[in-house]
């Protein structure tokens, strides 16, 4: 039998000090995040798109709603919609980022990740956190478009949304995983992203208040993670203002619990199906 004493020779590193498992998982998540960020910088097209998207979503859809819908509400609609649109953009951009797992599959780069001795969760979480980068850029774009329209947040309100954005992106990415995990084709993935985002935009209260929803729409709104993310964000942004009661649905504790529970379930199920669909061919 060979005795394998491994040292650093001819440039190859040996496993003299075996990296710990926790280090490797964190290292993996971080490496995937860095990869996503550097890929984003290398394709300026994507970055420009993530700034152009708010122009359409916030500028056109939001602007139109503000001009035509704001009457008769007992709170400032512009601010309500700006916050909703920022969260909506986080959801949209994160889902689009997660959908690039399909590109990795087509380019066979997923093999490089799947063959590594790391947890499948690390791969998926890395992808989601990496997508969060472009998502935050898109969110900042929304903020700028909002400012141009005369809708502004205080610096404190902005910071609190920024602080919540990792949790929101995780929720968004986990939901996307539920669908993307099973999809192996680019076109279908793009379609899936639209199917996830569009209904949520209207049913979760991003741009239209859902305080009066009932029946099936009420049930669906309670199943969407964005409903809880939005409510949590609004609870923080509107804390201590007279409008608080009019713009929020739940106690913030309910929102946090709802967000975390749905995220954990989606992430677990999504990752399981992703790993299985990559392997069971």
């Amino acid at each position: 039998m060979e005795i394998t004493v491994k040292t650093t020779v001819i440039g190859t590193v040996g496993d003299v000090k075996k990296p710990s498992r926790v280090f490797r998982e964190i290292s993996t998540i971080w490496a995937i995040v860095c990869r996503e960020v550097s890929v984003a910088f290398k394709s300026p097209g994507t970055l420009i798109m993530s700034l152009a998207m708010p122009l359409v979503m916030m500028g056109m859809i939001g602007g139109n709603l503000t001009q035509n819908m704001a009457d008769g509400l007992n709170f400032d609609f512009g601010m309500f919609m700006l916050v909703g649109m920022m969260i909506n953009m986080l959801f949209m951009a994160t889902s689009q980022g997660v959908a690039t797992l399909v590109d990795d599959h087509e380019d066979n780069f997923s093999e490089e990740m799947l063959i590594a001795p790391v947890s499948r969760y690390a791969i998926v979480i890395g992808k989601i956190c990496g997508s969060a980068f472009s998502a935050v850029v898109t969110m900042l774009g929304t903020l700028i478009v909002g400012a141009v329209m005369g809708i502004t947040l205080s610096f404190g309100q902005f910071l609190s949304i920024l602080a919540l954005s990792p949790l929101i992106c995780l929720a968004a990415g986990s939901l996307a995983m539920l669908f993307i995990g099973l999809i192996k084709n680019r076109k279908a993935a793009n379609l899936a992203v639209m199917l996830i985002i569009m209904p949520q935009m209207f049913l979760s209260g991003a741009i239209i208040p859902i305080g009066n929803s009932s029946g099936l729409l009420w049930v669906i709104s309670r199943m969407l993670p964005m409903t809880y993310c939005l409510d949590l964000t609004r609870a923080v942004v509107y804390a201590g203002t007279p409008e608080y009661g009019a713009v929020t649905l739940f106690n913030p504790l309910v929102s946090i619990t709802g967000t975390i529970c749905i995220t954990v379930v989606c992430l677990t199920v999504g990752t399981f199906f992703y790993a299985r669909s990559e392997k069971d061919r």
Binding site: R24, W30, A31, C34, R35, S38, F109, E112, P117
Partner: peptide, 25 residues
């Protein structure tokens, strides 16, 4: 091939080394 074509050659190696826990990225 299972390389990331948009990264540089070295970035591909760095990524690999990080996944195997040899060096942090």
């Amino acid at each position: 091939p299972s390389l990331d074509k948009s990264l540089t050659a070295e970035e591909n190696i760095r990524f690999h080394a990080a996944l195997y826990g040899l060096y942090g990225y």
